[in-house]
Design a binder for these strands. Structure first.
Lengths: 144, 144
DNA sequence: TATTGTTATACTCTATAACTATA
DNA sequence: TATAGTTATAGAGTATAACAATA
């Protein structure tokens, strides 16, 4: 385990503050107005793991089960996920993203890049490189 | 401006997703249960810049003026900020953090480190170093 | 008896619109 | 006429508690 020395203290504060502010801006920059950040995140997760149960999704997104019930219902109403009975456990359900969701993810990826291009306009190559290197670590941290 | 090539595309997705999830977890890990993430962020901002008007704080935190009015009122009720009339413009007010806020920030910094220590337990030195390097860039991004 | 998911309900945070006071 | 801040109100997102169905 890394030893948290005094210098890291400032880094932690900086990291926390930046993440909170960035998340607030990202909320506003949603590519599809009809989709909340968590709905988008769920679709991204499903694109990565194929399919999952509501409970698994709730744990992965760090949201309570009732919240995930609502989110999945909204996504289903929009035709972005499909709900099927679990083959082995009749209590559970299996959530799978539809082709429409895949197409939407691809489209929003283009739009996000446009927005980010504007934002990284103020960054130099070195800064952007650092961010790129840190992205997977941030993901790991979010999953830990 | 850095050219956003194909490889960056994935980094953007990764970054966005990670920031959203981390922010959700940070919300839960608030050191002082009675303080929202934005309230904490405002205190951090004030600690950095000394004092500011509600309008300035709203812009810095990327929040609308009425929201900042509420936040400042809550902080004042908790004795964490002081409100004074602006010396030159009687429409404006000056918000300053109190000693109590400074003490609380110091205390919460210790608690945050303890929480982070648990989280970075799963990171190796190299990953933590990447995160530390990226922190100031994330901050810059959040301010851009 | 434990677990998965749902329903019903309430809370927190933020936004928009309309208003007041000052510039 | 424009700007800083406030008040009133509404909406989005999430949580907790109680419940149903299945294991």
């Amino acid at each position: 385990m890394p030893d948290l020395s005094h210098g890291d203290d400032a880094a932690v504060n900086s990291l926390r503050s930046a993440v909170m502010r960035l998340s607030r801006r990202l909320k506003h920059q949603r590519v599809d107005e009809s989709l909340s950040p968590t709905e988008m995140s769920v679709l991204g997760t499903l694109a990565g793991c194929g399919s999952a149960t509501p409970g698994e999704l709730a744990r992965k997104e760090h949201v309570q089960p009732p919240s995930m019930t609502r989110i999945v219902a909204l996504l289903e109403a929009k035709g972005l996920v499909r709900l099927e009975p679990h083959p082995e456990d009749r209590r559970q359900k299996v959530v799978t993203s539809t082709e429409r969701a895949e197409a939407m993810l691809a489209e929003s990826r283009r739009k996000r890049n446009a927005w980010l291009a504007g934002l990284v306009d103020g960054l130099d190559e070195d800064e952007w490189a650092k961010l790129r290197e840190a992205a997977p670590v941030l993901e790991k941290l979010a999953h830990l």
